[in-house]
Amino acid sequence: MHRGLKPLLAVAGVALVAGCAAPSEPQVTFYSHGRSVEVAPAQYCDPTGENCTTSPDAVGDLRVPERAPLQISVPGKVAETPWQVVFLYRGANGEELDGRSPVFAPDERHAYTLQLPPDGTRLEHVEVQQFSAVLTEGVDGGVDFGIGGSWVLNVQQQ
């Protein structure tokens, strides 16, 4: 091989490897009582709601004691868009209930502490939802934003 081509091929190989490295998808961190878990998105789309990847197995597991808070931390890539937290929990009588946080405006916050409502005893399932720029007609005549990203946590009991 010609001596002048070796450095050129080496540089081209490095550029090729660097060019193929896809940007990593943002991870959400869930924390409770000294333990945390980072969760990859179960679904993640570009801002237009296109080019989605899904990973149904991307579900975190974390033990959260009864009536205990759950802290959620989202990276800048999530916080720069509207997002919210939806959750399922058990009421004092064992009934399955659901709830949701307010929708957080872009760059409003990077963290949220989920405290169950007074009627709740046990958190069971949590999902962080990142809204996309896709609008659809709402059931009540308004508009709904599409979900562009979703991070899922199953809560383990003691």
Results as ranks from 00 to 15, higher is better:
residue 80 E to F: 06
residue 28 V to Q: 04
residue 30 F to N: 03
residue 89 Y to S: 12
residue 53 T to W: 03
residue 134 V to Q: 12
residue 97 L to T: 00
residue 105 A to P: 00
residue 45 C to K: 05
residue 59 V to W: 01
residue 129 Q to H: 02
residue 37 V to L: 10
residue 55 S to V: 09
residue 146 G to S: 07
residue 24 S to H: 08
residue 23 P to C: 07
residue 125 H to L: 14
residue 124 E to V: 04
residue 117 P to C: 11
residue 120 G to S: 07
residue 35 R to W: 01
residue 118 P to C: 04
residue 143 V to F: 13
residue 132 S to T: 10
residue 57 D to Y: 04
residue 35 R to H: 15
residue 68 A to E: 12
residue 68 A to S: 15
residue 106 P to C: 07
residue 82 P to M: 08
residue 77 K to E: 15
residue 43 Q to G: 09
residue 13 G to V: 07
residue 107 D to M: 09
residue 79 A to W: 00
residue 130 Q to V: 05
residue 155 V to Q: 00
residue 52 C to G: 08
residue 57 D to H: 14
residue 18 A to Y: 12
residue 106 P to H: 08
residue 47 P to K: 03
residue 144 D to K: 14
residue 13 G to T: 06
residue 154 N to M: 10
residue 42 A to Y: 07
residue 157 Q to D: 12
residue 70 L to W: 02
residue 158 Q to S: 13
residue 59 V to Q: 10
residue 61 D to M: 12
residue 1 M to L: 10
residue 153 L to C: 09
residue 89 Y to C: 07
residue 109 R to Y: 01
residue 119 D to L: 08
residue 98 D to V: 09
residue 32 S to R: 02
residue 85 V to W: 02
residue 2 H to Q: 13
residue 79 A to L: 11
residue 93 N to F: 03
residue 102 P to I: 10
residue 44 Y to K: 04
residue 131 F to E: 10
residue 155 V to M: 06
residue 136 T to K: 12
residue 136 T to G: 07
residue 2 H to W: 03
residue 151 W to I: 05
residue 138 G to F: 07
residue 135 L to N: 06
residue 138 G to M: 08
residue 138 G to E: 03
residue 7 P to W: 06
residue 4 G to Y: 13
residue 89 Y to K: 05
residue 75 P to T: 06
